[in-house]
Amino acid sequence: MATKIFKHIQTSVVPLPIENIDTDQIIPARFLKATTRDGFGNNLFRDWRFDENDNAKQDFVLNNPNYSGKILVAGKNFGCGSSREHAAWAIADYGFDAVVSSFFADIFKGNALNNGLLPVQVSDDFLKKIFDAVYADEHAVVEIDLVDQFIKIVATGEQETFEVNPYKKACMTNGYDDIDYILSKKELIQEFEDHK
């Protein structure tokens, strides 16, 4: 099945300079009762975004009209905790195409890649540069190029390359799907089972 294609974006960013953001913050467990993949964006960062009476908390960045864009920039160890893919669905459904951090939790990274949401791991220094840029100018634009694997702060020209698994890169830039790939090797699976 074809999936979303990602090659290149250039957009303003949303800064969230908090470390160890776990998937329970991204999408709290009580919103995991849905049985489809749709609509999780409404509850993205629910308890940071809204109070117990569902009023928007004005001090949270997603409620600040000065910040918008397709890139979420967050502190290190982003996406730790539960394996819930709902976290990646919520971020993508809200409208982000990429998450930038200096460190990602494993399962989140895999889930994001399986949903056309690009996790971009940068150095601590470069992460700080992005935060500095966006706090100096909330419309600061960041460019991410998956084909050539670089991320750039457009105003200053500062850039850094990033790593991505070559297979997952091919999937994201072409819209390939893991299941189609494994199914193409089905005779090997049956052979493996016969020799077990």
Binding site: S82, S83, R84, E85, H86, A88, D106, I107, G110, N111, N114, N115, N165, Y167, D178, I179, Y181, I182, L183, K186, I189
Partner: peptide, 22 residues
């Protein structure tokens, strides 16, 4: 180990998982 729902579908469909060795 734990996996996301796309991988749950993958294992349901193939009894296999694409995985890099940690």
């Amino acid at each position: 180990f734990g996996i996301g729902t796309s991988q749950v579908e993958q294992v349901m469909a193939t009894q296999c998982l694409l995985q890099s060795r940690p």
